[in-house]
């Protein structure tokens, strides 16, 4: 790294004095990179291309966890598997039953909608994606997905699990994609209250069990236990998917706005597979940052 010139000048014990000029230049470059990266549009395409390089590394890092999982499955005793199977079958039955109910409700709903000639039903595309078992940063709310632009995942796709909204794709490379969770502080999601349709924005807090709803009117009709659903406003998620349950509403005396906190419904920490969804083309807002 050092020039021969440098070495020739250096006396015996000062041979490794770091160059201050080099330090300043490198720090400046790093800071410029960070500033450029803050303006996502600048570096995201580059980042997506770099994902092609880093994907094999993720595969490698996920190997031990996958091996352990395979071993556990192989060694899992029959009894446990049988009971698990039974539980799953029960769940399936329950789900089928509920689906039937929903279908009936849906038909009724569609009839009403048709009568009212209200908003046409939004169609949804869904795609199953696996979560790669690597840990990007224990203090950040992000995921790595096993599928990328090769399998039709694009930046901005919504991610849901069986219980609710999980997050969004923030960069999609050829074979893998980064996603941010709804609990990431840089994520915000338009929601509506299932009980009365009140609209709000749920932002992440950086804690995996809390979302926050800022700037609510003081007289907002919101109570502990209310369920928040995704609304059509964002254009990223199909409307009506559960997001969170309100756990606290704060109306501080003297404050101009009320604030509420909610607990995400999706199993954010324990998922293996997610569904990537995208409401069929309609003008949405800008891409997530």
């Amino acid at each position: 790294m050092r020039s021969p010139d440098d070495q020739a000048q250096a006396p015996l014990f000062a041979g490794t004095r770091p160059g201050t000029l080099k330090l300043v230049v490198l720090l400046a470059v790093a800071i410029m990179l960070m500033l450029a990266d803050r303006q996502r549009s600048l570096l995201v395409p580059m980042r997506e291309r770099a994902l092609a390089l880093t994907t094999p590394v993720y595969r490698l890092a996920a190997l031990p966890a996958e091996g352990l999982e395979a071993l556990r499955t192989a060694l899992g005793d029959r009894q446990r598997l049988a009971s698990e199977n039974e539980a799953l079958r029960a769940d399936l039955l329950q789900a089928r039953f509920e689906l039937q109910q929903r279908r009936a409700e849906g038909e009724a709903y569609a009839r009403v909608l048709a009568l009212l000639e209200a908003a046409r039903r939004q169609q949804v595309e869904g795609r199953l994606v696996r979560i790669v078992d690597v840990d990007l940063d224990p203090f950040r709310q992000r995921l790595l997905l096993d599928a990328g632009s090769d399998s039709g995942i694009v930046r901005g796709d919504g991610l849901i699990d069986a219980l609710g909204v999980v997050g969004q794709v923030s960069a999609a490379g050829p074979g893998s994609a980064f996603a941010i969770l709804i609990t990431d502080p840089s994520h915000a999601l338009p929601v509506e209250v299932s009980r009365n349709g009140v609209k709000a924005i749920a932002s992440g807090t950086g804690e995996s069990h809390r979302l926050v709803l800022h700037n609510l009117p003081l007289n907002v009709d919101l109570a502990v236990g209310d369920r928040l659903l995704s609304s059509a406003v964002g254009g990223r998620f199909p409307p009506g998917i559960p997001v969170a349950e309100v756990i606290e509403v704060e109306r501080a005396p003297g404050a101009a706005f009320a604030t509420a906190w909610a607990r995400p419904l999706a199993a954010l920490a324990s998922n293996r597979e997610l569904l990537a969804v995208r409401p069929l083309p309609e003008a949405g807002p800008g891409l997530p940052r």
Binding site: V29, I31, M34, A36, R38, L136, D137
Partner: peptide, 12 residues
């Protein structure tokens, strides 16, 4: 790049 961090953060 690997951890999907703000580019330049680890570098700095």
């Amino acid at each position: 790049l690997l951890y999907g961090e703000l580019l330049g953060e680890h570098a700095l």
